[in-house]
Amino acid sequence: MRNESGPYRVNLFRPKSGYMKGEVAIMLAALVGWGVVTFGFQLLLRLTDVPGRGSWLAGFSFFNLPFHFWFTAQMLPLWFIIICVLFNLCIDRLSKRQSRRRDGFND
C-alpha cells in the first residue's frame, strides 16, 4: 500500500506497539458495550413487541416506571457513565504498567 510506506504508521486496526494493542483492545470493548446495550435493547424491544399487547419488557414496572422506559431513560445514561469509568480505569492501569516498563514516562 503506497499510502502506508515509511516507518511511521498509525492504524486503528493494526496497532503496532504493545501499548497501542492494549489501548485498542480496551477501546473495542468499550465500544461494543456501548453499541450492543444501547441499540441491542431497542432492537429487542421491537422484536418482542406483540401487536395489541406490547412487549413484555414494557409489561412490568421498575422504580415505578415501565421497565423499558426506565432502562432507556435512566439506566442507559448511567451505563454510559459506567463504561467511561471502566475505560478510564483500564487506560490508567495500562499507562502505569507501560510507565514501569519505560523510563521518562510523562503522561
Partner: peptide
C-alpha cells in the same frame, strides 16, 4: 414520549465516543 428518548441517549452516549475515540 418514548421516541424522544433518542435525544436523551444521543446526547449522553456521544460522550462515550468522545472519550473512547478522541479525548486523550
Amino acid at each position: 414520549g418514548y421516541s424522544a428518548l433518542a435525544y436523551v441517549i444521543g446526547w449522553t452516549g456521544g460522550y462515550v465516543l468522545l472519550l473512547v475515540l478522541l479525548a486523550g
